[in-house]
C-alpha cells in the first residue's frame, strides 16, 4: 500500500505545478453553467415552480455539481495513457514493475483529480452563490458523506474508462468507445436529473453507471436525505466491486494475450 501512497504523492506534486492551467478550464465551465442558468431561468416561469420535483435552484445546482465532477476528473491517464501504453507496446515494461498496473493507473488518476476537483469545487461554489444563491436544504454536516459519494463516483467512472482502454489489447483504437461512454454520461447523466426523463426510461438509467457516477452524488448534494444516501452508497459499492472485478479479469486476459503473441 505504501508504494501507491508514494505514487500518489509524486503525481500530486507534479500536478500542483499545473494548477494555473487547470484554472484556464474554468472559462469553459463558466460558459456552460452560465448558459444553463439562463436556460432554466427561461424554462421556470413561475416562482416556486417545480420541474420533475426540482426547484430552479436545485436544477441549476444539479448541473453545476455534475459538471464539476466531469471537469474535475477530466484527465487523460485512464483513457489515452493506458491505450497508448498498450498500443505502443510500452505496457511490457510497465507490467514487470512490482506494482499492479491498473492500481498504478488508478492511483495516478487519483493524484490528478486531487488538484482539479477541489479547485472546481471552490469555483463552482463561488459562481453558484453569486448566480443562483444557496441551496435551501444544504447542511454542512452532510458534506463529508457527500464528498465520499463524489469520490466513489469518480473512481467508478475511472474503473469503467480503464476497462474500455484495456480493450486496446484486442482492438486497435478504443477512443470511439471512450467517446461513446463519455457521451452517454454527459448527455443523459450530467445535464438533467434522471427524474426528468420519461418514466419508462428511468429504471433503465438507474442500472447504468450514470446513477452511481454523476446522478447519485449530485442528487445528494442538491436534495439530501438519509434514505437516498444509503441507497446510493450501496449502489456505488456494488458497482465498484463489480467494476473492479471486470477490470481485473479483462486485464489478466489481455496480459495473457500479450505473452502469447508478443508486444
Amino acid at each position: 500500500m505504501r508504494k501507491y501512497r508514494v505514487i500518489y504523492k509524486s503525481v500530486l506534486m507534479e500536478n500542483l505545478q499545473y494548477a494555473a492551467n487547470v484554472a484556464m478550464g474554468f472559462f469553459s465551465y463558466f460558459v456552460f453553467i452560465y448558459i444553463f442558468v439562463k436556460l432554466w431561468e427561461y424554462m421556470y416561469r413561475m416562482p416556486g415552480e417545480r420541474i420533475a420535483g426540482y426547484t430552479k435552484e436545485q436544477m441549476i445546482w444539479y448541473v453545476m455539481m455534475t459538471e464539476m465532477i466531469w471537469f474535475g476528473s477530466n484527465v487523460a491517464s485512464v483513457a489515452n495513457e493506458v491505450a497508448g501504453d498498450i498500443r505502443s507496446g510500452d505496457i511490457a515494461y510497465r507490467i514487470n514493475k512490482p506494482y499492479h498496473y491498473t492500481l498504478y493507473i488508478l492511483t495516478k488518476y487519483t493524484g490528478e483529480w486531487s488538484i482539479r476537483l477541489p479547485m472546481y469545487a471552490v469555483f463552482a461554489a463561488v459562481i453558484g452563490m453569486v448566480m443562483v444563491g444557496p441551496l435551501p436544504k444544504f447542511g454542512l454536516r452532510e458534506v463529508p458523506v457527500m464528498a465520499l459519494c463524489v469520490i466513489l463516483g469518480l473512481t467508478i467512472n475511472a474503473v469503467f474508462k480503464l476497462c474500455i482502454s484495456l480493450f486496446s489489447f484486442w482492438i486497435e483504437d478504443t477512443t470511439p468507445f471512450q467517446w461513446l461512454y463519455d457521451k452517454v454520461i454527459l448527455v443523459v447523466g450530467t445535464i438533467f436529473p434522471i427524474e426528468i426523463f420519461p418514466e419508462i426510461l428511468q429504471p433503465l438509467f438507474k442500472l447504468t453507471p450514470i446513477y452511481t457516477v454523476c446522478y447519485g452524488p449530485a442528487k445528494l448534494i442538491v436534495d439530501f436525505s438519509p434514505e437516498k444516501c444509503v441507497e446510493i452508497l450501496a449502489a456505488q459499492l456494488l458497482y465498484l466491486v463489480g467494476g473492479c472485478g471486470v477490470m481485473l479479469l479483462v486485464y489478466r486476459k489481455g496480459v495473457k494475450k500479450l505473452y502469447v503473441n508478443g508486444g
Binding site: K183, V184, V187, V188, I191, F192, I196
Partner: peptide, 8 residues
Amino acid sequence: SILVQWFI
C-alpha cells in the same frame, strides 16, 4: 446525441 437534450 445532443438532440436528446432538446427532446427533453
